[in-house]
C-alpha cells in the first residue's frame, strides 16, 4: 500500500552498515576523495562562518565575556545555572515553544487544507495560489511594520474599521493577553502560502495508481486523504515541518518589529531575550548561554521529528 515503507523498510540497517563495509582502507580513502571535493566549498564556508563562530559562542558562554577585555572571567557553568533561576528565561522558553507549536500546526494545517482545496490546475486556482503565496516574498521586518500600523487601535486600518462599526478599540499589540496571538496570526499569515506550495508539490507527486487502487477498495474522499495522501507525502511533510519548526524557534524579526518582546514580556522569545542580553545589556556570556540552550532544543526537536517521520525510510 505505501510505496516507501513496502520497498524500504529494511534499508536503515543496510544503510547503517554501508560506511563500515568490508573494503580495504586505502582504497576507501581514495574513493572518498570525490565526495569530499564536491562537498568542500559548502563545507568550508559552513565551518568558517557557522561552525567555528558557534563554538566561539560556546566559549563565551562559559565566561563573563566582555568584548575586547584583556582577560575574561571564567564562570564555568554559572551562566547556565543562572538561566535555571531566571524567570525571564522560563517565560521566554514558554513563549518560544508556544509560538512555534501553534504557528507550525496552523501553518501546516491551513496550508494542507488550501493545497487540497486548490489542487486542480484551473487558472482560477493558480491565481488563488499565487495570492496566498505572495506574503512569503516580503521581508518579515517590513510586513511586521505594516501589520503594526494596520492593527493600531486608534489610527490603524483595523482600528478604523472597528470604530466605524462602533466597536471599542482593540489593543492587539498592547494587551498582554492578545499580543502573542496577534504575532502568531501574522506569522501564519506570512508562511501559510509557502507551506501550501510545498505540500501541493508533495500531493501532486503521489501516483494516481495509489488513488485508483484505494478507490477500487471503496475508499471515500476522507479515507483517501488519511490513508493515501498523508502517508505518501511523509517526506515532504517532514521537510516542511522541520524547516518551519526551526524557523519558528528562531523567530526574531517579526517579534522585534511588532512588539520587541512586550508587553510585559508576553511575546519575549529566546532570541529576543538573547538579543537584549547581548546587545542592550552587553552580557555576551549570558546571551551565548541562552543561544546554546536554544540550539540544543532545536536539535532535540529536529531529531524527534526525524524519528517521528522515520526519516531513514525516505532515503
Amino acid at each position: 500500500m505505501l510505496r516507501q515503507v513496502s520497498t524500504r523498510t529494511t534499508s536503515p540497517a543496510v544503510r547503517g552498515s554501508r560506511p563500515g563495509g568490508g573494503r580495504a582502507a586505502p582504497r576507501r580513502a581514495f574513493r572518498g576523495l570525490p565526495g569530499w571535493l564536491f562537498a568542500a566549498p559548502s563545507i568550508i564556508i559552513l565551518i568558517v562562518f557557522i561552525v567555528y563562530p558557534i563554538t566561539q559562542s560556546l566559549w563565551y558562554s562559559l565566561h563573563d565575556w566582555r568584548i575586547g577585555a584583556e582577560s575574561q572571567i571564567w564562570l564555568g557553568l554559572d551562566n547556565y545555572q543562572r538561566l535555571l533561576g531566571d524567570e525571564l528565561f522560563w517565560n521566554a522558553l514558554r513563549v518560544t515553544l508556544l509560538f512555534s507549536l501553534v504557528s507550525v500546526v496552523l501553518q501546516i494545517g491551513i496550508g494542507y487544507w488550501a493545497a487540497t482545496a486548490l489542487m486542480r490546475e484551473t487558472w482560477f486556482n493558480r491565481v488563488f495560489r499565487s495570492i496566498f503565496f505572495f506574503p512569503t516574498i516580503v521581508a518579515l521586518a517590513t510586513i511586521g511594520l505594516v501589520w503594526r500600523f494596520l492593527l493600531d487601535a486608534r489610527i490603524g486600518f483595523v482600528g478604523g474599521v472597528v470604530q466605524l462599526f462602533g466597536g471599542d478599540p482593540v489593543e492587539f499589540l498592547q494587551d498582554p493577553s492578545l499580543a502573542l496571538s496577534t504575532v502568531i496570526f501574522v506569522s501564519v499569515w506570512k508562511t501559510v502560502g509557502y507551506a501550501m506550495v510545498i505540500l501541493l508539490a508533495g500531493i501532486k507527486g503521489v501516483p494516481d495508481s495509489l488513488y485508483e487502487a484505494a478507490r477500487l477498495d471503496g475508499a471515500n474522499a476522507r479515507q483517501l486523504n488519511w490513508h493515501v495522501t498523508l502517508p505518501s507525502i511523509r517526506p515532504t511533510l517532514l521537510f516542511v515541518t522541520m524547516i518551519l519548526t526551526i524557523n519558528s524557534l528562531q523567530v526574531f524579526d517579526l517579534v522585534y518589529v511588532m512588539t520587541n518582546g512586550g508587553p510585559l514580556f508576553a511575546t519575549d522569545t529566546l532570541v529576543t531575550m538573547m538579543y537584549r542580553e547581548g546587545f542592550t545589556n552587553f552580557n555576551l556570556g549570558y546571551a551565548s548561554a541562552i543561544a546554546w540552550v536554544l540550539f540544543v532544543i532545536i536539535m532535540l526537536l529536529s531529531a524527534l521529528q526525524l524519528r517521528l517521520f522515520r526519516y531513514q525510510d525516505v532515503d
Binding site: 493600531d152 486608534r154 489610527i155 489593543e171 499589540l173 498592547q174 494587551d175 512586550g262 508587553p263
Partner: peptide
C-alpha cells in the same frame, strides 16, 4: 493610553 511606543504616541 496604555503601552504605546514613542512612535505610536507621536502618531496619536
Amino acid at each position: 493610553p496604555v503601552g504605546l511606543t514613542g512612535a505610536e504616541s507621536d502618531s496619536l
